Simulated assay, not measured.
Amino acid sequence: MRSLVCSCRSLLVTFLLGFAAFAAAQTQPVRPLLTPDELVPLLRDPGVRVLDIRPAAEYATGHLPGAVNIPYGVFRGPADNPGALPSEQTLTEALRRAGIDQNVHVIVAHAGKDATDFGAAARVYWTLKVGGLTRLSVLDGGTLGWAEDGHDLVTAEPRPEPSNFTVRFDSRRILSTEALAERLQTGSPTRLIDARPEPFFHGETRHAGAARYGTLPGAASLPHTRFFAADGKRLKPLEELRAIVAREDLIGSEPAVAFCNTGHWAATDWFVLSELLGHEDVLLYPESVVAWSRRDLPMDHEPSRLQALVREAKRWVAQ
């Protein structure tokens, strides 16, 4: 009898210690950007879930220990408008299967080959945030950076307990084409930031899904690649990021809106400005130029009809 009581006490103590550790973890601030070395001790926490956003075939060849897989395409809109958000139902089902809810610290791991891969992670981070999650981070360097830093990849796939989380998109954080057009038409102070490479900004090239060349009216150029180290895989140190933004003088008292072609590269600009540098009034325009250019809305740096025909001919030859 005495041994049974001792055993029950031991189990109770273990449970209470575990619960206390979990509760303490929930109160700890979550950093939006983590290095591989900073991630290592977190992997022992049952409240942490690494979310690998690579295609399933790449995930199967090797991933971070304990990582679950939801490919990036799940977080995107349809083929004719990839910048749009997925349905709440689609994302809810994916997150439930991955065992993700509002108490889980989600760390997004991208492929890590280049700056565009980071943009995918930033876009997923933004989507999860507007969908109701708050404990979010991105792994700087992604899966490739993890391996290059000497950490192991595994092929074993976890089987997490499904969650009952329901995605509810926060419309206050999602800027539609109609809402942005109204802002500009009514003269509401708005700083537009184009995250695309400069040839897009200057109307020299266009995304295949865009109807016109050019940029949004009054926009300033801040290509997403400026935030990355020379290899294009990891972000520059925080002070360098702050210096870049200060030098460009893009953030003032008015709200800022980051955009690109389909809300992918722009997610990096939004992530740096909002999550790393702490600028509170920064929004992402998810559907970006592809959606804007299809409407009867003004654009800057839009070439003449003849110039556009010449550029179309060059695009056709290059294909």
Results as ranks from 00 to 15, higher is better:
20 A>L: 05
152 D>A: 15
44 R>F: 10
135 R>P: 01
141 G>C: 12
191 R>F: 08
101 D>C: 02
259 F>G: 03
85 L>P: 02
33 L>E: 07
28 Q>A: 12
146 W>C: 12
214 G>E: 13
152 D>K: 13
317 V>E: 07
296 D>V: 11
123 R>K: 03
121 A>L: 10
55 P>D: 00
90 T>D: 11
21 A>I: 08
128 L>V: 06
59 Y>A: 02
316 W>T: 04
80 D>G: 03
179 A>V: 14
239 E>V: 07
170 D>L: 07
244 I>Y: 00
100 I>S: 06
73 G>W: 08
172 R>Q: 14
109 A>H: 11
278 G>M: 06
109 A>L: 14
69 N>L: 06
51 L>I: 04
11 L>P: 00
154 V>G: 05
150 G>N: 13
41 P>Y: 03
261 N>V: 08
80 D>N: 15
155 T>I: 12
96 R>S: 04
4 L>R: 00
9 R>G: 07
199 P>T: 11
81 N>C: 10
184 L>Q: 13
235 L>Y: 14
310 V>E: 12
110 H>P: 07
58 E>N: 07
230 A>S: 15
53 I>M: 11
84 A>E: 02
32 P>G: 00
278 G>K: 05
112 G>K: 10
276 L>H: 03
77 G>R: 04
208 A>K: 15
288 S>C: 07
34 L>T: 03
57 A>D: 09
106 V>Q: 08
284 L>G: 00
18 G>H: 00
13 V>G: 00
254 E>N: 08
80 D>Q: 12
147 A>H: 14
